[in-house]
Design a protein around this nucleic acid. Structure first.
Length: 591
DNA sequence: GCCGTTTTCGGCCCGACTGTTTTCAGTCG
């Protein structure tokens, strides 16, 4: 059992404990253990081996004697006594219910004890039958909201967030690569195109072991991978299976000679491929997953690389992120023919990002100091950062009041001076947008800070127009320069776009307020469609990691994909400015 | 359940918002 699986079981146990009404601190310790286990770079199973020093495990913060025993049980038996005990009282499907808005552990426990409701279908039936209304504190509004939540959940839960899919892709790839003679495993499909969510995983493998005459042994290896939950199909060069979380995986083993054609074919999208095949036919060619072939003599024109295939169709190479048949083929044709206009955009790349202007430190809920964040940013090539710790309304983060915000800014200036020009550190704050759209710090305070990010953290179950008006009112404050995570943060838990993005972006563009695209996948705010919309409205985008730890700055690499899908160039993004001064110049001027 | 001590047990992020109340429990960040 690997760390990810261990962490998930610990986290599930924490949820079951919550439903059971256990001590909140006991629950917290299980959650904390799950987090730290997930972040370990070495596999804990190796620390639990008979010959391993038991002190190493206990040296991990958050792992004590009890948790170490739990981990040992999990590794040895796949489960642990506490988990089994809880599962005799409750049902594993009740964990799904916790993902619904308004459903917390108490409510899940209540519907179970009162109505024996333990899964989504039963809950929906009970809600529709009006049974919930008989329970305390559950009226009409609650039921309505719940049914909407169930609908949204069903709509989204068949797809997986890209970071989750990528993680599984990497784990499966590593297992496949263990077979001698398989040299390359590449994800294709919507994962390669950078879609925010992925329906199933397409993995392409190649190498000497994938040549037609010997591929059977490699297929056998893939079909018996340990993490397969359900083997769905097994063909000559293809294996399809599902994982325990129901993610479907297609693995294809292909000879080197047709790898480019296969990559092109399986990356899609479907619409892009249809258009490409039509283009091929017009040129007397036919495109398949094996090769681009001339019809008159069956001669293979291109097959080993994608670039050769695109070029043979008189197209410049099209980056996977653009392959949606949204005009990229026409643009690639223009580029290939050397036309002066209408070519493929020079898409933004990670190297274009020079600053990260939304981050937290130990002053509130971050895990690193100002200096540590600055050093980590330098290591990643950033030229400027902004320290934007939370304001007081976010009590759980130890948010700052006005006096603390100013004192913190003074420390930021001090550290900035000590950096001696290696990086510029802006002062700042992430203020919270209150119910009426006002901010939770004084204007006099904000006036003394370089970067004011205004974010909504409160609940999103009010009507869309209420939330939209609240955000617009907030960004009208003259000191706000960036609208932080504009659409709310949880992509799958609830309707991610309970905000009129068009109205917000329109006003932001008028005011010169930059709209943030949060680079962390789990916090994705602007879909590629919304990014395109924002660009079309003249909105300036600020892409930030909202890092709470130094390592989170690496999320920048994930975030860039969404920008590329939206055809954005370096010019569309404010924090591509080469210097701190130039960056400030791109932001709204204070009145 | 973990931690750090006072080595045996107390402390462990807390406040706003909502729906349902008519004073508050539950959820969320």
């Amino acid at each position: 059992m690997d760390n990810i699986a261990l962490a998930r079981l610990l986290d599930e146990t924490a949820s079951l404990l919550e439903i059971d009404g256990a001590d909140v601190f006991r629950v917290r310790s299980y959650r904390r253990a799950a987090e730290t286990v997930e972040q370990q770079t070495i596999q804990l199973a190796t620390l639990l081996a008979p010959d391993a020093d038991p002190k190493l495990l206990l040296a991990i913060p958050g792992i004590g004697k009890g948790m170490a025993a739990n981990l040992r049980d999990l590794v040895d038996t796949g489960t642990m006594p506490l988990r089994e005990e809880l599962l005799t009282k409750y049902r594993a499907t009740m964990l799904d219910l916790l993902r619904l808005p308004g459903m917390g552990p108490k409510t899940v426990a209540l519907v179970w004890s009162a109505l024996q409701v333990s899964n989504m279908d039963e809950l929906e039936a009970a809600a529709k039958a009006g049974q919930l209304n008989e329970l305390p504190r559950m009226g009409e509004k609650f039921t309505t909201k719940l049914l909407k939540g169930i609908e949204d959940y069903r709509k989204n839960s068949s797809r997986f967030r890209i970071d989750v899919a990528r993680e599984f892709a990497e784990r499966i790839s590593a297992l496949i690569l263990a077979f001698p003679g398989i040299e390359t495993v590449t994800p294709a499909g919507s994962l390669r195109r950078g879609r925010e969510t992925v329906g199933d995983l397409d993995l392409l493998a190649t190498g000497p072991a994938c040549e037609p005459d010997v591929v059977a042994a490699a297929v056998q290896h893939v079909a018996t991978l340990p993490l397969i939950d359900n083997l769905l199909a097994r063909g000559q060069n293809k294996v399809t299976f599902t994982l325990r979380n129901n993610l479907q995986v297609d693995v294809r083993l292909l000879p080197r000679v047709s790898y480019g054609a296969a990559m092109q074919y399986f990356t899609g999208s479907k619409h892009h491929n249809v258009a490409l095949r039509q283009r091929a036919i017009k040129r007397g060619l036919t495109l398949s997953e094996y090769a681009l072939v001339r019809l008159e003599d069956n001669k293979i024109i291109a097959s080993e690389t994608e670039e050769a295939i695109y070029n043979a169709l008189d197209l410049a190479y099209i980056p996977p992120e653009l392959r949606e048949n949204n005009g990229e083929i026409e643009a690639a044709a223009a580029s290939f023919s050397g036309a002066a206009t209408g070519g493929l955009p020079k898409l933004i790349t990670l190297a274009d990002i020079r600053g990260d202007v939304h981050m937290h430190t130990t002053e509130t809920d971050g895990t690193a100091s100002i200096r540590e964040m600055a050093e980590a940013a330098i290591a990643r090539g950033r030229k400027y950062i902004a320290i934007t710790d939370h304001s007081k309304n976010l009590a759980m983060t130890n948010g700052m009041d006005d006096a603390r915000a100013l004192a913190h800014a003074a420390r930021v200036r001090q550290v900035n001076a000590e950096m001696e020009g290696r990086i510029h550190i802006f002062t700042g704050v992430e203020v919270d947008i209150l119910a009426e759209g006002e901010l939770d710090l004084e204007d006099a305070t904000l006036a003394q800070l370089d970067i004011v990010v205004a974010s909504v953290h409160s609940r999103f179950d009010q009507p869309k127009e209420v939330i939209t008006a609240r955000i617009i009112r907030a960004i009208e404050n003259p000191y706000v320069r960036i609208l932080g995570h504009p659409t709310g943060r949880k992509l799958l838990k609830r309707d991610a776009y309970a905000v009129d993005v068009e109205a917000v972006c329109r006003r932001a563009a008028e005011l010169g307020v930059a709209v943030e695209h949060n680079a962390a996948p789990a916090r994705t705010d602007l879909s590629d469609a919304n990014l395109r919309l924002a660009k079309s409205l003249g909105c300036r985008i600020s892409m930030n990691t909202d890092a709470h730890a130094t390592g989170e700055m690496d999320y920048m690499e994930d975030g860039i994909v969404q920008l590329r899908r939206a055809w954005l160039t370096a010019d569309d993004v404010v924090n591509t400015a080469a210097t701190a001064e130039e960056f400030l110049g791109r932001l709204r001027k204070r009145s």
